[in-house]
Lab assay of single mutants.
Amino acid sequence: MATGGRRGAAAAPLLVAVAALLLGAAGHLYPGEVCPGMDIRNNLTRLHELENCSVIEGHLQILLMFKTRPEDFRDLSFPKLIMITDYLLLFRVYGLESLKDLFPNLTVIRGSRLFFNYALVIFEMVHLKELGLYNLMNITRGSVRIEKNNELCYLATIDWSRILDSVEDNYIVLNKDDNEECGDICPGTAKGKTNCPATVINGQFVERCWTHSHCQKVCPTICKSHGCTAEGLCCHSECLGNCSQPDDPTKCVACRNFYLDGRCVETCPPPYYHFQDWRCVNFSFCQDLHHKCKNSRRQGCHQYVIHNNKCIPECPSGYTMNSSNLLCTPCLGPCPKVCHLLEGEKTIDSVTSAQELRGCTVINGSLIINIRGGNNLAAELEANLGLIEEISGYLKIRRSYALVSLSFFRKLRLIRGETLEIGNYSFYALDNQNLRQLWDWSKHNLTITQGKLFFHYNPKLCLSEIHKMEEVSGTKGRQERNDIALKTNGDQASCENELLKFSYIRTSFDKI
């Protein structure tokens, strides 16, 4: 039985969820670079991206490699990797027998973001014989899940209580170790020597080791999670996991709180800001991140802002960003909400898709409305799209047979046209069989910064309504002859009103 693990408890099935942008060198404390989270699957090609990484700022997932063999891993080693800020997950990587050479110096898994409450997941690794993470000293947050690894031993010899604050939620089941077939031998045991430290858990006094050649490092209890030197002297209180010299914040392997210019500090002093819960960055760093993602459509890219001495992905609820200094300031009234469309555009074809934009005031991208039916549609669209004030790209209304009016965009005031449909149009209306009105132009103002209007096959939309939009939106004169079809717009509506004058002759039985 794995020490510190839980057996036999019912657990939810383990679901495996399925960018080499360097964020800056980590400095003297770390020998390499800070790398983003990685999802490495199918083959070993991307694994080489770990070569210079000291910190993975995010998670590391290595999974679904069915053609790899043990010899493929023999020359692979990433000794610079010290810390993973989120979680480490391995799933069905064939041929991998140990992690001792792959990650010989991995010391800390912070667990800032977890995989279903777990910071370390080893699942269905069919050839893994031992973990071998002999320098792993601290899992700051989260638990361990090690399950269905039929060859995995050296679990009962690990004292997880020396690595985690609590072992109650560890789930370590259905491994070879369960069948008591392992016969784990710690260093020196074969020669009758006791080389590794022994600890007591559940009444068992057991030597602690990761492999037959690597003991588990056990520091004096007084050192807590700070770690200790090879001689057993406690590291500085700002260290986490390990250090090369005692009581020196510049000799830590990793930091308990924050890293700044080669030393570990309790908090980031001005003019620095907390970033990702582990390091200090200056304003320029946060500003660069903001600008890199301002026009990016890459998933996970955030326009970072500053709030409460932190550089964070977005302002919290009730705050909006001051564009001059990136500071989050309290909103006066309802907060603006910028919604970034991942692929640059979004099609609204149902109430469900409209709900995804609920509360958005600025759309960074283009909207395509293609709704053919739905219950209580006008009210639903207004509830979900009615706060949109600005669209950076274009607005396209296409084959939306259920629409009679666009009044559900009740606050839309600006279409920038930074991206144009077919390279020309910022407003595009095609084949809307029941569209009769755009907006009530006596109450609604709309500016279209650039781009043209396109109207074709809107049989109940009168040309007068379209011409009014040209005047109000500032697009009059931009359109070419064929942009607004004269014969297919309003051709099934009563669009022309003329005053009919009647004269009559009164007659009676005795007068003409």
Rank of each mutant, 00 (worst) to 15 (best):
H28G: 01
H28Y: 12
H28A: 14
H28W: 08
H28R: 04
P31Q: 15
P31K: 08
P31I: 12
G32T: 03
G32W: 15
E33F: 02
E33N: 12
E33I: 06
E33Q: 11
V34Q: 03
V34S: 04
V34H: 08
C35L: 00
P36Q: 05
P36L: 11
P36Y: 13
G37N: 06
M38L: 06
D39S: 12
D39L: 04
I40K: 01
I40S: 15
R41V: 02
N43E: 05
N43A: 13
N43C: 06
N43S: 08
L44E: 10
L44H: 05
L44Q: 08
L44K: 08
T45M: 15
E49C: 08
C53V: 11
C53D: 00
V55R: 01
I56V: 03
I62T: 01
I62F: 14
L63N: 05
M65S: 09
F66V: 04
K67S: 05
T68V: 05
R69S: 04
P70L: 13
E71V: 01
D75T: 10
D75V: 11
F78G: 00
P79H: 07
K80I: 11
K80A: 12
K80Y: 15
L81P: 00
L81M: 03
I82P: 00
M83G: 11
M83C: 05
M83N: 00
M83Y: 10
T85S: 08
D86Q: 08
D86P: 00
D86G: 09
Y87D: 00
Y87F: 12
L89T: 05
L90V: 06
L90R: 00
R92W: 03
V93S: 02
G95A: 09
G95S: 06
E97A: 11
L99D: 00
K100Y: 10
K100H: 01
D101L: 14
L102G: 04
F103M: 13
P104Y: 01
P104L: 01
N105H: 05
N105R: 04
L106H: 02
T107A: 08
T107C: 03
V108G: 05
I109Y: 00
I109F: 02
I109H: 00
R110G: 11
R110N: 05
L114V: 03
N117G: 04
A119D: 00
A119K: 00
A119P: 00
L120D: 00
F123I: 00
E124K: 02
E124V: 03
M125G: 01
V126G: 04
H127V: 03
H127F: 15
H127N: 02
L128Y: 00
L128Q: 06
K129A: 04
L133I: 11
Y134K: 01
Y134S: 14
L136R: 00
L136T: 03
N138I: 08
N138E: 01
I139R: 00
R141Q: 04
R141L: 04
G142H: 00
G142M: 00
G142S: 02
S143N: 04
R145P: 00
R145A: 04
I146W: 00
I146D: 00
E147M: 05
K148C: 00
K148S: 10
N149P: 00
N150T: 06
E151G: 09
E151S: 05
A156E: 08
A156H: 05
T157Y: 02
D159L: 02
W160S: 00
W160M: 11
S161C: 11
R162C: 07
R162F: 09
R162E: 09
I163P: 00
L164N: 07
D165T: 04
D165R: 05
S166H: 04
S166P: 08
E168V: 05
E168M: 14
Y171P: 03
L174T: 15
N175F: 04
N175S: 03
D178V: 09
D178F: 12
D178S: 05
E180L: 12
E181S: 15
G183S: 08
G183Y: 13
G183V: 14
G183Q: 07
D184K: 12
I185A: 01
C186Q: 01
C186T: 01
P187G: 05
P187H: 08
G188E: 05
G188N: 05
T189C: 09
A190E: 07
A190R: 06
K191T: 11
K193T: 09
K193H: 04
N195G: 07
C196M: 05
C196P: 01
T199M: 06
V200T: 04
I201E: 02
N202P: 04
N202L: 04
N202G: 15
Q204A: 11
Q204T: 04
F205L: 08
E207K: 14
E207Y: 09
E207T: 15
C209D: 00
W210Y: 02
T211E: 15
T211F: 02
H212L: 11
H212F: 06
H214A: 08
C215D: 03
C215K: 03
K217V: 07
V218H: 09
I222V: 13
C223L: 00
C223P: 00
K224M: 09
K224F: 07
S225E: 06
G227A: 07
C228Q: 01
C228A: 01
A230Q: 15
G232W: 13
G232M: 08
C234L: 00
C234Q: 01
C235V: 00
H236V: 04
H236R: 02
H236K: 04
S237D: 10
E238G: 14
E238Y: 07
C239N: 00
L240V: 06
G241D: 01
G241P: 01
C243M: 00
C243T: 00
C243F: 01
S244P: 04
Q245P: 04
P246T: 03
P246F: 13
P249R: 07
P249Y: 06
P249K: 03
T250R: 11
K251N: 12
K251G: 06
K251L: 11
A254V: 12
C255W: 00
C255K: 01
N257E: 06
G262M: 06
G262R: 07
G262I: 09
G262L: 06
V265F: 13
V265W: 12
V265C: 06
T267I: 15
P269L: 06
P270K: 11
P270Y: 13
P270M: 09
P270Q: 08
P270D: 11
P271R: 13
P271A: 13
Y272P: 01
Y273V: 04
Y273I: 07
F275I: 03
Q276C: 05
Q276Y: 10
D277C: 10
D277P: 05
D277E: 12
F283P: 07
F283Y: 06
S284P: 09
S284E: 08
F285I: 10
F285T: 08
C286H: 01
C286L: 02
Q287I: 11
D288W: 13
D288S: 10
L289E: 12
L289W: 05
H290M: 09
H290P: 07
C293I: 14
S296Y: 06
S296R: 14
R297W: 07
R297G: 12
R297F: 06
R298K: 11
R298E: 08
R298W: 14
Q299N: 08
G300D: 12
G300C: 09
C301Q: 14
H302D: 15
H302G: 14
I306H: 06
H307R: 08
N308F: 08
N308S: 09
K310N: 09
C311V: 08
C311Q: 00
P313K: 08
C315H: 09
C315T: 01
P316W: 04
P316F: 09
P316R: 11
Y319R: 07
Y319H: 12
T320L: 09
T320R: 10
M321S: 11
S324I: 00
S324Q: 13
N325V: 07
C328W: 00
C328I: 00
T329W: 08
T329R: 14
L332V: 15
G333D: 13
P334R: 15
